[in-house]
């Protein structure tokens, strides 16, 4: 999981949370429900995930259940990668 969480965490720190304390972004920090990712940022994250991990997401998979935390994102990517 760390090989997924690491790059995603760095992406979010670099783009959305620039200048924030990196330790505040834990694997269970709520990203969508906590207001860190808005709808634009969420779609940009989707594009990053697709390019970085070579997966294809569908519209109904873009929701707080699958993308709200780094752990959830990692699980989604892992599940998708396994099917590729």
């Amino acid at each position: 999981m760390d090989e997924i969480i690491g790059p995603v965490r760095q992406y979010i720190l670099d783009t959305v949370l620039r200048g924030e304390d990196p330790s505040a972004l834990r694997s269970d920090t709520p990203l969508i429900s906590g207001g860190i990712l808005d709808s634009l940022a969420t779609l940009e994250l989707v594009s990053f995930l697709e390019q970085r991990f070579g997966i294809q997401l569908e519209a109904h998979e873009v929701d707080a259940e699958r993308l709200d935390t780094l752990s959830a994102i990692a699980a989604l990517v892992q599940g998708k990668s396994a099917r590729v």
Partner: peptide, 12 residues
């Protein structure tokens, strides 16, 4: 405008 500013610029 928000896209141009980048994601950090629109942090809530």
């Amino acid at each position: 405008r928000e896209r141009q500013k980048g994601q950090a610029g629109r942090a809530p």
